Simulated scan of single mutants.
Amino acid sequence: MKLLFSERLAATILLVIFALVVLFHGLVITGIIPFGIVWGGRLQTHSQMLVFETVSIALNALMFGVVAVWVGHWKAAVGAGVLRGALWLMAGLFLLNTVGNLLSTNAVEKAVFTPMTLLLALFSLRLALGPRPVVPVARL
């Protein structure tokens, strides 16, 4: 079966999207972007937004790290099995998030973030299904 996109392309797009998503959530925390357009429009208070956005930034940074280590941009003593498992979890999480975005009460979230999370799911799945690039593992 021929795959539609390379692992390198999938990893590059994932890294760019994760960086942009962290930036986006930082703009939500600072109030530059209103928090009514995230989390399905269901956040009621500023304190709720801070908790949800902080968790989102942490998770996106962690997923950035998983991809960066997987493709060898960062060195870490993490086994391929752990990284592959994380990529499978990411694919599942993004697939569930796609469903959540489809159910959003906010039209912008539905229109913009539904296709993005679907792409994130597909690119994460592409990395999870492929062989890990041969990269030296850092010794601690």
Rank of each mutant, 00 (worst) to 15 (best):
F94C: 03
N101C: 10
L103K: 11
V112A: 14
L95Y: 09
L93D: 09
M116P: 01
L95M: 14
L89H: 09
L120N: 01
L122V: 11
N101D: 06
G100N: 09
G100W: 09
L102I: 12
F113C: 04
L119W: 08
L119I: 07
V112I: 15
A121K: 01
G100E: 07
P115V: 14
E109F: 08
L103E: 10
A111G: 11
F113W: 14
K110H: 14
L93F: 13
G92D: 04
L120S: 01
V108M: 10
L122Q: 03
V99F: 14
T114I: 08
A121N: 00
N106C: 09
N97C: 07
F113S: 01
T114G: 11
A111R: 14
A121Q: 02
L102D: 06
N106W: 05
F113I: 07
P115C: 04
A121M: 09
V108H: 08
V99K: 09
T98I: 06
L118T: 06
N101L: 05
S104Y: 05
S104G: 04
L95T: 15
L119D: 00
L96N: 11
A111D: 09
G92Y: 06
N101Y: 04
M90H: 08
F94T: 07
K110Y: 11
L95P: 03
K110E: 07
A91M: 00
M90R: 02
S104P: 10
L89M: 15
T117P: 08
L96C: 13
W88E: 02
L122M: 05
T114M: 13
S104D: 05
M116F: 00
G100Q: 10
V108Y: 14
F94G: 00
L118A: 06
A107L: 15
